[in-house]
Computed example of a mutant assay.
Amino acid sequence: MNLVLFDLDNTLLAGDSDFEWAQFLIRKGVLDRELQEAKNVRFYEQYKAGTLDIFEFLDFQLAPLARHPRAQLDAWHREFVQTAIRPMITAKARTLVRQHLDGGALVAVVTATNSFVTGPIVLGELGIPHLVATIPAQEGGAFTGKPRGMPAFRAGKIERVDNWLESLGLHWGSFARTWFYSDSHNDLPLMSRVSDPVAVDPDDTLRTHAEQAGWPVISLR
């Protein structure tokens, strides 16, 4: 059996669901545009530059989940998927996912974006059965605005994947080959862990690294 891992934002999606979720809430008037839009853009630029403080960002990104009832959040999210996410899913991305699923691989998305935002996208829109993501903490069925455990960011992705595999009774040695597809240099720790790293529409830093290392570089756009 093979293991196939995908990053989500700017890899399987032609855009960033984390950034777009905040922008969606701004457009709905849930977040104040004047106060929040500049923060959202700043965090996104820090992510691309490799300088993001993930815990500072999660304080910003998870706070709205703690302020609204789950039913309202779910309703907003359904609209978000329909209007913002479906246009980001390309035919090439769907085909690649289907090829690996049909080939019998264990397939998962591994993403720093929290599971509330990404779960319906990964399971409902892409048909991928497993999600390894940053987990929003809950108390009494309500979100607290804080993450639970290690965020799935940079080296944290390896820890989260290790724990997920262990929960299935598996480990890295269970697989003949392991893939990870990503666009971002932030994912170099996990890309260096697998047997078959693939750079997908990569940022400049990852492209340079991939070319020097002889990794495949592909486009799903």
Rank of each mutant, 00 (worst) to 15 (best):
T118L: 00
H77R: 15
F19V: 15
T111Q: 10
I89Y: 00
N186P: 09
P129C: 09
L168S: 06
E20P: 08
Q138L: 13
R98T: 11
A199I: 07
S195C: 03
A112Q: 11
I128H: 03
S115Q: 01
S115V: 02
W215T: 06
Q72S: 13
I128C: 01
P64W: 08
L73G: 07
R160K: 03
P216Y: 03
A137Q: 14
L220T: 07
L123F: 09
L25W: 09
I121M: 01
R207W: 09
V161L: 08
V30E: 02
H100S: 12
V217W: 08
V30S: 09
D53Y: 03
R160A: 05
R160Y: 06
T90P: 00
T144F: 03
D201C: 10
L170E: 13
P129Y: 08
L31Y: 09
V217Y: 02
W172M: 05
L25G: 11
A210C: 09
A199G: 12
L126F: 08
V198F: 01
G149M: 01
D7V: 09
L8A: 01
T205E: 10
E20F: 09
D203I: 04
N114M: 09
I26C: 04
G169Y: 07
F24W: 12
K39R: 11
G214V: 08
R27A: 14
D74P: 01
R98W: 11
S195P: 00
A63W: 13
S184Q: 04
G145L: 08
F143E: 06
D201N: 15
L106H: 05
Q138R: 11
N186H: 09
G124D: 11
N186F: 06
A108M: 05
S195Y: 00
F80S: 05
R207C: 10
I54L: 07
L58D: 07
E45D: 08
V81N: 02
S17F: 01
A152C: 15
G173C: 06
R177C: 05
T144C: 05
Y181C: 04
D196R: 04
H130Q: 10
Q99W: 02
V217K: 00
A152T: 12
R221G: 10
G15M: 02
R160F: 07
V132I: 15
T51D: 13
D183N: 06
F43D: 08
P189Q: 04
E139S: 14
A152V: 13
K92G: 13
T134A: 14
E139I: 13
Q82M: 12
P87M: 02
F19D: 14
N114I: 02
A66S: 14
D59L: 14
G149S: 06
A63R: 15
Q23F: 10
L13M: 04
V194Q: 08
F80P: 05
S115W: 03
I135S: 13
T11L: 01
I26Q: 01
D9V: 00
D162H: 03
N40K: 01
V109I: 04
W21Q: 03
H77C: 13
G140N: 10
E125K: 14
V97F: 03
I135W: 12
R193S: 01
W172F: 04
G173M: 11
L8H: 01
G173V: 12
A49I: 07
G127K: 12
V200Y: 05
G173P: 01
K146S: 10
Q46F: 00
M1F: 11
I54Y: 04
L106Y: 08
Q72M: 15
K28D: 12
P189H: 03
L73V: 04
L5G: 10
P64K: 11
P64G: 07
P202D: 09
G119T: 02
